[in-house]
Amino acid sequence: NNDALSPAIRRLLAEWNLDASAIKGTGVGGRLTREDVEKHLAKA
């Protein structure tokens, strides 16, 4: 759900053309954090 994404995370996902549903969020309530996105990018 994009409503739970911060503007910074939305921008990062758009910049790298990533799908938020493909990344497991570790923040409060399962929210994506910058670290989650960076770890996903490191694996790719």
Score class of each variant (00 low, 15 high):
5 L>P: 04
28 V>D: 10
43 K>H: 10
30 G>R: 03
5 L>V: 10
22 A>F: 08
13 L>E: 00
21 S>Y: 08
21 S>T: 11
44 A>I: 15
14 A>T: 09
26 T>D: 02
18 L>D: 02
28 V>K: 11
22 A>Y: 08
13 L>C: 13
34 R>C: 09
28 V>E: 14
33 T>W: 02
40 H>G: 02
36 D>Q: 01
12 L>P: 00
40 H>F: 15
12 L>T: 01
29 G>K: 06
9 I>M: 07
28 V>T: 10
14 A>Y: 11
15 E>V: 11
33 T>Q: 04
42 A>E: 11
14 A>M: 13
38 E>M: 15
11 R>H: 09
25 G>V: 05
23 I>T: 01
17 N>K: 09
26 T>A: 02
2 N>A: 13
25 G>R: 06
40 H>D: 01
44 A>Q: 14
44 A>C: 13
5 L>D: 05
12 L>K: 03
34 R>Q: 12
30 G>S: 04
32 L>K: 00
12 L>I: 06
3 D>V: 09
24 K>Q: 13
36 D>A: 01
29 G>T: 04
41 L>Q: 04
21 S>N: 12
7 P>Y: 06
41 L>S: 02
24 K>P: 10
42 A>Y: 12
40 H>N: 02
22 A>M: 14
5 L>S: 04
35 E>G: 08
28 V>G: 06
39 K>A: 14
14 A>R: 13
10 R>H: 06
26 T>P: 01
42 A>V: 09
25 G>M: 04
7 P>R: 09
9 I>R: 01
14 A>D: 14
15 E>S: 09
20 A>L: 07
14 A>L: 13
39 K>E: 10
36 D>W: 03
30 G>Y: 01
11 R>P: 01
25 G>Q: 03
39 K>Q: 12
33 T>Y: 02
24 K>C: 12
7 P>K: 09
4 A>L: 14
35 E>D: 09
4 A>N: 14
35 E>L: 11
28 V>S: 08
26 T>E: 02
9 I>W: 05
6 S>L: 07
13 L>M: 05
25 G>S: 06
44 A>W: 15
2 N>D: 14
7 P>E: 15
9 I>L: 13
22 A>N: 11
5 L>F: 07
29 G>D: 11
30 G>P: 02
17 N>H: 10
36 D>R: 01
32 L>V: 09
34 R>P: 06
30 G>D: 04
39 K>H: 11
40 H>S: 04
32 L>I: 15
24 K>N: 09
14 A>G: 05
38 E>I: 15
14 A>F: 11
28 V>L: 12
25 G>T: 05
23 I>M: 06
10 R>A: 09
34 R>K: 13
11 R>M: 09
1 N>M: 12
34 R>G: 04
37 V>N: 00
12 L>R: 02
9 I>S: 00
6 S>V: 05
25 G>L: 03
6 S>T: 12
37 V>G: 01
41 L>E: 02
2 N>Y: 07
15 E>H: 15
32 L>W: 04
39 K>V: 07
30 G>V: 02
4 A>R: 13
30 G>I: 03
19 D>G: 04
3 D>E: 13
30 G>K: 03
7 P>I: 11
11 R>V: 09
34 R>D: 07
11 R>F: 10
39 K>P: 02
28 V>W: 09
28 V>P: 15
22 A>R: 07
42 A>N: 09
1 N>A: 14
41 L>R: 05
2 N>I: 13
27 G>S: 03
4 A>E: 14
6 S>Y: 04
42 A>F: 11
28 V>M: 10
38 E>N: 06
28 V>F: 13
18 L>S: 02
24 K>M: 12
24 K>D: 07
4 A>D: 14
32 L>N: 00
38 E>S: 06
21 S>G: 10
42 A>K: 12
37 V>M: 03
4 A>V: 13
31 R>K: 12
23 I>R: 01
43 K>W: 13
27 G>A: 04
29 G>V: 03
7 P>A: 14
7 P>Q: 13
38 E>A: 08
8 A>R: 07
29 G>S: 06
1 N>K: 09
23 I>G: 01
28 V>H: 09
41 L>V: 10
13 L>F: 04
22 A>T: 11
14 A>I: 10
31 R>W: 06
17 N>G: 15
34 R>Y: 15
43 K>G: 10
8 A>L: 11
19 D>V: 08
18 L>T: 03
7 P>N: 11
19 D>K: 07
29 G>I: 03
31 R>P: 03
25 G>E: 02
17 N>P: 02
20 A>H: 05
35 E>W: 13
6 S>F: 05
24 K>R: 10
36 D>K: 01
1 N>H: 14
39 K>M: 14
27 G>H: 01
18 L>R: 01
9 I>P: 00
25 G>H: 07
7 P>D: 15
4 A>I: 14
37 V>E: 00
11 R>G: 06
33 T>R: 07
20 A>E: 09
8 A>Q: 10
15 E>D: 10
44 A>F: 15
33 T>I: 05
6 S>I: 05
6 S>A: 08
20 A>K: 05
26 T>N: 04
10 R>M: 10
33 T>F: 02
42 A>G: 08
44 A>Y: 15
36 D>F: 02
38 E>P: 01
36 D>C: 02
30 G>Q: 04
19 D>L: 09
24 K>S: 09
2 N>S: 12
27 G>L: 03
23 I>A: 01
3 D>I: 11
33 T>H: 00
33 T>M: 05
39 K>I: 09
8 A>Y: 13
32 L>F: 04
13 L>Q: 01
19 D>E: 12
44 A>H: 13
2 N>M: 13
30 G>W: 01
6 S>Q: 05
43 K>I: 13
41 L>D: 02
21 S>I: 06
37 V>A: 02
28 V>A: 12
10 R>C: 15
3 D>P: 10
20 A>D: 05
13 L>T: 01
17 N>Q: 09
20 A>T: 05
44 A>T: 14
30 G>A: 04
8 A>W: 10
